[in-house]
Design a protein around this nucleic acid. Sequence first.
DNA 1: CTAGGGTTAG
Length: 551
Amino acid sequence: MIMRSLAPNLRQNTSSRLNPNHLSNIIGNIKHSFYHQTFRTNFSSSSVTHFRQDISQTNYLIASHVRRGDPVSAWILFHSLRRARAVVDAYTFTSVLRACTLLHVSQLGIQVHAQMLKTGADSGTVAKTSLVDMYSKCGSLDEAVKVFDEMSQRDVVAWNALLSCFLRCDLPVEAVGVLRAMGRENVEVSEFTLCSALKCCASLRALELGRQVHGLVVCMGRDMVVLSTALIDFYSSVGCVDDALKVFCSLKGSKDDMIYNSLVSGCVRNRRYGEAFRVMGSVRPNAVALTSALVGCSENLDLWAGKQMHCVAVRQGFTRETQLCNALLDMYGKCGKVSHAQLLFDGICEKDVISWTCMIDAYGRNGRGPEAVLLFQEMRMRKEGRKVLPNSVTFLSVLSACGHSGLVEEGKKCFKLLREKYGLEPDPEHYACYIDILGRAGNIEGVWSAYHNMVEQGTRLTAGIWVALLNACSLNQDVERGELAAKHLLQLEPNKSSYIVLVSNFYAAIGRWDRVDELRSIMRSKGLLKEAGNSWIKVLGFNQHVRSLSV
DNA sequence: CTAGGGTTAG
């Protein structure tokens, strides 16, 4: 009972950034429920002996809690063992580490690691591999790499775990480095390795390399459903849907949901709607397939296809699935249909933080800042239903809504709330929005004081920050500091044409036409084109999506 | 007991 009531809280806090307050709450809750559990199931001294005799059975029990997806029970049981000073072994720890991973609370994992060090259970390859996995899944990449470095014996599983670390953190170049190291060390690759290699190729859009991996997959000839799914995903990401379809059609043997989902998603992302609908017609689409298809429609800004997906979702009776409704609502918001988004939002029974954030964003991106701010207010003040806390993405949506609609005071208030009321640390993106708001309001001193604030806090100075600063300087004719921002931006991203255009616009704004000409010739010499832009225009009362290309 | 494929917000 206690565990069940805990579960939603835990799930809600598995986002990438944990609020320290929430964290202590989680640990507090776990301790609290552990306390009750201990008394209710009374782990008496006879149970302790029982544990000691049957550690392998207890290990099995912990492992089955984890397998069932109930990490809280696993943790409670483990904690009871420790309190009873029962002898635990490496098997216990590996299961418990998986529980920590599912809870996504690295503090618990660190505790377990410490206990492993104390008992010497951390030395084996399997134990170290579980530690690598736990740290990387809890977001501590550095710790994961550290543990890997300490390993004296590394088998292919350990290497694969490290590979997954980098892929999880979206560091495909580093992942390729791991693959190279595996080659140097003559590690015999497994199908897991090939799977990760395909993921690397997909995110790097490395078509040729991926084709080579495809060759290895064929040679290996095992676990074809999983590897075929990865192949379909890879070919779709590099725009070769036909190859993806070939992989799918040539697959002998049984096909599961995932491979269908991957194919549907790939077809939609590449605007091959006909094939996508054909696949969905042959096998009943599940909610996941529709969700990923809707993301494709949003990316393509394709309202027509999105509406078709909506129809399919209604026919299949998925209208109560929050995740799917969120994807639908987001699609309508991105395609400019705020009222459709609103209808969907109102119909979601169990609104989560993503529902709220998508709706706020739908208002904001369609120039309806005041409604975005109002909805944010409503979210924060809501009494009925389960409390949903805004996270850093929610704040970003509100701030950007304020920026687009020139709501200076609301933006300032929101930025203050972020840290003071919700204990979140502003990301560079938050600062960029904030600087943008102040710059548009003509408050150039506020802009630079926000900048100094960032430097003091040690926030990363990203290209986005320099863009925001540069825009503010253009608007406010802040020549000197604008040149500084321009210099930093071009240093950070010398080959991005959109940034060169931005800098050139700054020089045009302050009347330095010599610099404008200079930048134009730089662009020409680098062979850079200005990327296509997207915009919505209203034609005969209909929103029309327009792509423009200028040189 | 450890590693792998499709799933919502920036």
